[in-house]
Structures are given as C-alpha cells and as structure tokens.
Amino acid sequence: MYGKRSRFLTIMLTIGMAFFYIPMILLVVYSFNYSKLVPVWGGWSTRWYKVLFESEEVWAAVNISLKIALVNATFATILGMLAALSMVRFGKFRGRTLFGGMLVAPLVMPEVITGLSLLVMFITLKQLFGWPENRGFVTITIAHITFSMAYVAVTIQARLTGMGQSLEEAASDLGAKPFKVLTAITIPRLTPALISGWLLAFTLSLDDLVIASFVSGPGANTLPVLIFSRIRLGLRPDINALATIIILVVAVCIAVAALIMFRQQKRDLLDQKLAEQER
C-alpha cells in the first residue's frame, strides 16, 4: 500500500510545499536584484548585501536584538523553571490554581494589551521613582521576559509531569538533601526541556514586533522594529537581503538541531542493541 506513492498524495505534497516556500524563494531571488525598485527585475547583483553590511543602523539593531534575546532567554528559562517546579513538585499550596492560571495568561493575552500595559507600567514607574529613565534595552528585556517565561514554564511543566517523581525520590532516599536533588537529578533530567525552553524564549524575543514597539525608545530599535519601520516607507531591496541572511541562519540552526537529534537516536539504538545482547 505504501510501496507505490499515490499520485494524489504527491500532488498535495507539492502544493503544500509550494505554498510554504514560494514566497521565501521569491524573497531570496529579489534580494539579488540589481534594480532599486523591488518589483522590477534589473539583473543579478549583490549590491544590496553591500549596502546592508555598511549600514550601521542595521548592525546596531542586530546587536541589540541578539543581546535582548540572550538575556531574555536565560532569565525566562530560570524563572520559568522555578514556576514549573512550584506548580508540579510543591503539592497543593494556597492559591495554586490562581498561580497556575496567571502563569499561562500571557499565552492567551493579546500582545497589544500586554505591550500597552507594560508601557503604562514603565511610565508610572518613571514618574514615581525616576526609573527607567529611557525606554530601550532594559524595558524591552523586561517586557520579553514577562511573556516568554509563560511559554518556558508550560514546556518545563509538561516535561516535569511526564518525568514522574521516582528518580527524585530515589535520590532523596539515598540521602540527598532537597537542593542536591534539584542540582544532581532534576536539572540534568530537565536539560532537554531547558534547552528547548531557552531556544523558544530566544526566538520569541527575536520575533517580537508588537510588544517591542510599545516599550522601545528612540535610542534602541530591535531588528523587527527596524525592518517594520523601513517597510512602512515602501519595499526596499536591502531589507530583502537582510531577510535572506536571517533565513540562512535559521536553516543552519535547524540542520544542526536535526544532526544532534540523529546522533542521539543512533546512540539510543546502540544502547538498545547492547541491552538486548545481555539477555
């Protein structure tokens, strides 16, 4: 049944793939367009890449975006892990249901509301305490942590629940105090979830336009904010070049992740074979 590929399936697959990738291919092709006007083909050229690499504004935005994403991912992972641990491992405590609900609220809250409320908060704080003086790196990072933490917490919560408690109980039974159990058993066991949570928070922060545009100031634009503000004035070929580079970076990341997963699978298979030999 599966030996012969059905014609219908092949066609559907082709259409599906085309739907996903034709826009991106067009973008890549137009990034090599000589013409200044995006829709007019003026022959192959790499001139817009040169323009892009010489633009200080773009590099500043890339720089700030990566910095925010790194700090955000790290803090969101730590806070998200603590939140997940208290939800899953601390049993019943007062306000647990409320806490659980509030933890996932940012997932369903419209981004515009989150952004607006954060902006109002920063303005109030400035009036009351004179801090934060300028909106920029710090405010965007704080804003990103508040919403990406929710995603991380949910990821880790799922892993913690699936993991069960017997390994932790075994460690405690063998004399490990609670903190030792956390560092020697829980965190190593959570590593895959922590890594995926970190990556999720990282990409969420890099992606975000709505919240960042509320809480960013004149001094600091993130890359999405910069791209969007430029596009508003019309399509520009150098932005196509920038987008092409981003696509390339993402593709490389996915390839690396796939390679790591493939090697892990191979290792598991070897382990299984070794275990079978022992019978």
Partner: peptide
C-alpha cells in the same frame, strides 16, 4: 525526612539515574 532515615528503597521501575 526521607534523606535522614536509616532505610533504603528499591523502586518498582528501579528508578536508576539515566544520566
């Protein structure tokens, strides 16, 4: 608490630390 008791337990699914 469990970590101060003079008992040790062998778990049903063994609970060996996989890492």
């Amino acid at each position: 608490p469990a970590y101060e008791r003079p008992t040790n337990m062998m778990f049903q699914s063994y609970a060996l630390f996989p890492h």
